[in-house]
Simulated assay, not measured.
Amino acid sequence: MVSIRDISSKCGLSVSTVSKALNGYSYVKEETRRKVIETAKELGYVPNASARALKTNRTFTLGILFADDQHNGLTHLYFSHVLNSFKSEAEERGYNITFIHKRYGKQTITLLQNCKFRGIEGVCIACVEPDEPEVQELAGSDVPVVSIDYIFPGCGCVLSDNRNDMSELVRYVHSKGHKKIAFVHGTDSYVTQQRINGYVDTMRGLGLEIKREYMLESLYANPHTAKKATEKLLRMEDRPTCILLPDDVSAFGAIEAIREAGLKVPEDISITGYDGVVYSQLIYPRLATIRQDTGRIGREAAKLLIFNIKHAQNPNLVPIVIKGELLAEQSVGFAR
């Protein structure tokens, strides 16, 4: 079996330096750390987790709390990519990943108890109901927490630039001559509020009328509820010329409603999505959308959480905001 001494000999570094690089010590140079990790992979080194835990009194385990309201789990087209990049970054830095929940065997325990029992050093909170008492308890505990697209007091966070990205989307649609722009938004959340603010502020800034009947609610990542909302908009006497959907998956439901009404996208009505999932660019017409940088969001969340674990007395609580990219595609045409 390959040992740390083998890596030390191959790299020309001391055993102590190799050990610290593998264990994620912050004062090891990045170039040295990468050299050690690459050599370890090349030699097939597998660390003994039990021995490391005994030696360092640490588990090097990060928890992920993730439960979307549609129960998509790891099939979620957006968050699955975010969590995958989080996992890759954390593992590269020597950490293990586990999902936390309220059960231990047949027992029901709190989220915080789960973390304490399993020795979880820090938690990434993504896509949960933030007002749940157990989530609040975890966020307010001594366990370092980094949230995605939500701000908990005293915790680090990584945010998509939802407000400004939505503003850019509205301005793009307006540049195509659209003035009657409807917004089917998601259910109430921090993300939804930021997008509504971006929509409302930009519409006002462009001198466009904001009609209450043009603003409907739909579940995120749910084509069925998005289809129902779209059908309602299409039945209006003064129907919109463009509909903004809460996400790309929901846009599939809108397309179905439009086609069943005997209309075409974008000849008769334009639509946009949000998130930039891969399937949005494989359909015809390709979906105009905001592509969120899921890779960077996940990586930054992992790096921030590990930093705050190592600097528990002086954590970084400044929100990291990551801008999306406008994909000006075929589903938005010129307004008639």
Rank of each mutant, 00 (worst) to 15 (best):
D248T: 04
I7N: 07
Y27H: 15
I109A: 10
S19W: 04
K303M: 07
V146S: 07
I100T: 10
S189T: 04
S26F: 15
V265R: 03
S160K: 10
Q292R: 09
S141A: 04
R296K: 14
A51R: 10
L112G: 06
T241F: 00
Q313H: 12
L327T: 01
V15I: 15
E260V: 07
L234P: 03
T230A: 01
A328D: 05
N48L: 05
A139F: 02
R103H: 15
L326K: 02
Y284F: 10
D248G: 01
D247S: 04
F60R: 11
V200Y: 15
A21T: 09
N72W: 11
D161H: 09
M215W: 11
N316C: 15
R336V: 11
A229E: 03
K310S: 07
Q330G: 03
I255Y: 10
A302M: 05
T289I: 00
F117D: 14
I100L: 06
Y284W: 13
E267K: 09
P315A: 11
V18N: 03
R103E: 12
L234H: 04
N84G: 08
H311V: 06
G156L: 02
F99C: 12
I210V: 12
T289A: 00
V184K: 06
E300A: 14
V15N: 12
M203C: 13
K232L: 09
K55S: 15
F252P: 09
